[in-house]
Design a protein around this nucleic acid. Structure first.
Ligand SMILES: [Zn+2]
Length: 687
DNA sequence: GCAAGGTC
């Protein structure tokens, strides 16, 4: 609101000018909250533009028209040409034009453009992150026009509480955050150009020798995600088990049997195991120490999306993308807060007490929420995860209606986790009783819960595992009533499942909370991986191996790290976005030239893998697979490496069991933990 | 038809 003062000769006239602002949010729920927070009477007028809701709020004499986007309303497309590569000429176009499945976005864009009428200023009120800055910029620039950009400002907030929103409005920036916008644009364009060009290059190479209907794809996030699966599969296929021995012992005290742990969890030689058995079996031991340690286990923090996806897989075997879908439904029904969050924190502005009061009206949660309400303070445990725009996932208190089974499960998990995060520490006492038998030590361990703390709110999602212990004193003599030793073999790492692969992507910091599970779905759709215990397919394998030669960067996590560093420089005005972009394009250009030059060879190796054919280019292949044989070996690189390790590991087996070479190979061949490549090599040696 | 990122 501007006050213009005109001082005439004899009088002073104040003219108060009301300004009209168009406020653009990222999603409908933020528009509603901002409108209610900023309207002086907390009751903004609600209007409809076609089917799209918008709000008109009066704020300190100004009029705010608040309308929302639905995420990105603009996307990248190639300007001209067909399905070929290289392609460098791109432009930003409305999303609904480029993707029919997203045609619903048209009504939102139409609404924003239609409402951009007699507006004094534009306000970008999208989420407080790079994508948010770009979403509003694209709409204003391409939808409303360049002249609107000069009147555009940015409103920044991290929680959608009235207090923060009012303050955000007061601290609105004088112009858009152009450096953040540039970083966002560069990210989109680099990803598009690398992703689309390399995907087409792979697909077209595969089609050279195959009637191949499918498309192949690769990208900055897909690449490393597939590489994780590939690497794990290599280690499983190359795994050679090692024998070890384990001691199982029991004692009996006052008629009750207790199992004992031997001092060493594993023994490396059979004779060591025999020694323990001979010296301790049937003997008596003396209690020489009783150690009691009380431990406090803090409550879990409320969920971020990754945690929720992980727990939903654990408890309901739901895939991460199904969990996201269910959580989205709950969010759109206003039963839970925004689910696409990386945060494990609930800021103090959120009224936890009020949420508990609402939850207590639901009989299912009445008892627990009333217990929590009996307290003086309502501070959820704060976790590590941070998010610039959204708090941790929590119930709103609003009672859900007509949920599907999966949504019901997810809702219950979220509510109980939220309540658990408000609980007190779980207190347990760990007891370790040391029993000495002829110089060998055995441990009798017990766990006793003293205070259930937060676990009483987490219900079936956390089971207490108490282990009782006998009444016993130092110096007491106890019998070893049973003792056996068993030979075991080490096992390879287990494969990823959709949830642990999301976790891995989180740990490696690739993709975002909203995209990780979808990208894993893409790997399945492409035929790169299969089954719930994720196994790479031959197609996935040949894709990784091709890229390892021709574009190793796209399957490396470091590619993302480098890009992030460059984007940060753009954000901080330390580097010209054009320079970052042209450097990336220089790299891409040389990769694509190289790819094109070798397209025939690449196509042949893809088709050979798929058809299970040996290579036809004259070179000899490995005795047990299609790959090229090394000069000084009968195997390819992979099988040669495996052969060398089979030789190395033999020493360990001879030491542990006194096995001879052939005996060793035959045993390995029978064990389930032995990797496929290992068995291929062994079968060849034993042929 | 191909990316990764938003969100319905
Ligand atoms: Zn081989």
């Amino acid at each position: 609101m501007d006050t213009i003062t005109i001082i005439g000769e004899k009088c002073i006239i104040f003219i108060i000018l009301q300004s009209r602002y168009l406020v653009i949010t990222e999603k409908p729920s933020s528009a509603r909250k901002i409108a209610h927070a900023l309207d002086d009477s907390s009751s903004p007028r609600k209007g409809k533009y076609g089917k799209v809701s918008f709000y008109v709020a009066e704020h300190k004499g100004d009029e705010l028209v608040i309308v929302s986007a639905v995420g990105h309303l603009y996307t990248i497309e190639q300007k001209k040409g067909g399905w070929s590569y290289p392609v460098y000429d791109i432009e930003w176009v409305p999303t609904y034009e480029s993707n029919k499945k997203l045609s619903y976005t048209k009504q939102y864009l139409d609404a924003i453009i239609g409402l951009a009428n007699k507006i004094d200023g534009y306000v970008s009120a999208c989420d407080y992150d790079q994508e948010g800055s770009l979403i509003a910029y694209n709409i204003i620039k391409h939808g409303i026009g360049d002249q609107a950009l000069t009147k555009a400002r940015r409103m920044l907030y991290s929680t959608l509480t009235s207090k923060e929103l009012v303050s955000a409005w007061e601290h609105i920036t004088p112009s858009l955050d152009y450096s953040v916008v540039s970083a966002g644009k560069t990210r989109h364009e680099t990803d598009w150009l690398f992703g689309i060009n390399l995907s087409r290059a792979l697909t077209l190479a595969a089609r050279r020798f195959l009637d191949f209907k499918k498309v192949l794809s690769i990208g900055r996030v897909q690449g490393p995600a597939l590489k994780f699966v590939y690497d794990l599969e290599q280690s499983i296929q190359s795994f050679i088990p090692t024998p070890y021995w384990k001691v199982y012992a029991e004692t009996e005290i006052e008629g009750e049997t207790y199992s004992l742990d031997y001092e060493k969890q594993t023994l490396k030689r059979e004779i060591h195991a025999r020694d323990v058995a001979r010296e301790c079996r049937g003997k008596k031991g003396k209690v020489n120490d009783i150690d009691e340690q009380s431990k406090n286990i803090a409550p879990p923090s409320p969920f971020n999306l990754g945690d929720l996806q992980n727990d939903a897989y654990k408890h309901f075997k739901m895939s991460p993308s199904d969990t996201l879908k269910a959580a989205e439904k709950l969010y759109l029904g206003a039963y839970i807060s925004y689910p696409r969050t990386e945060s494990n924190k609930i800021p103090k502005e959120i009224n936890v007490k009020e949420i508990l009061e609402e939850l207590s009206k639901n009989r299912k949660y009445e008892e627990e929420s009333k217990l929590l309400l009996g307290r003086k303070r309502f501070i959820p445990k704060q976790g590590k995860g941070e998010d610039p725009a959204h708090p941790a996932i929590h119930p709103t208190g609003q009672r859900p209606r007509q949920l599907k089974k999966e949504e019901k499960n997810i809702y219950d998990l979220i509510v109980k986790r939220f309540m658990a995060s408000l609980g007190e520490d779980l207190i347990q006492v760990d007891t370790t009783i040391s029993i000495e038998v002829k110089g060998h030590t055995f441990y009798l361990r017990g766990i006793l819960t003293q205070k259930t703390g937060w676990t009483q709110f987490y219900g079936e999602y956390h089971k207490l595992k108490d282990q009782r212990i006998p009444k016993i004193e130092i110096g007491q003599i106890v019998p070893i009533t049973s003792l056996s030793t068993r030979r075991r073999y080490t096992r390879p790492s287990s494969r990823f499942n959709p949830s642990s692969l999301v976790r891995k992507m989180e740990q490696e910091d690739i993709g975002t909370k909203a995209t990780r599970s979808n990208i894993i779905d893409t790997l399945y759709q492409r035929g790169y991986v299969k089954s719930n215990k994720i196994k790479i397919t031959e197609l996935g394998e040949v894709t990784i191996e091709t890229l390892q030669t021709f574009c190793p960067d796209i399957i490396k996590v470091e590619f993302t790290r480098i890009l992030e560093k460059e984007l940060k420089k753009i954000e901080e005005n330390q580097k010209d976005p054009d320079k970052v972009f042209s450097e990336a394009m220089e790299e891409l250009k040389s990769i694509l030239e190289d790819f094109k030059k070798n397209e025939e060879q690449i196509g042949r190796s893809i088709s050979n893998t798929i058809l299970g054919k040996r290579s036809l280019d004259g070179g000899e292949s490995c005795k047990v697979c299609n790959r090229d044989k090394l000069e000084d070996s009968v195997f390819c690189q992979k099988h040669t490496d495996v052969y060398n390790r089979v030789e190395d590991e033999f020493q360990q087996w001879r030491y542990a069991l006194g096995y001879q070479w052939v005996e060793y190979l035959e045993k390995l061949n029978k064990l389930s933990g032995t990797g496929g490549y290992v068995k291929e090599v062994i079968k060849f040696i034993l042929r």
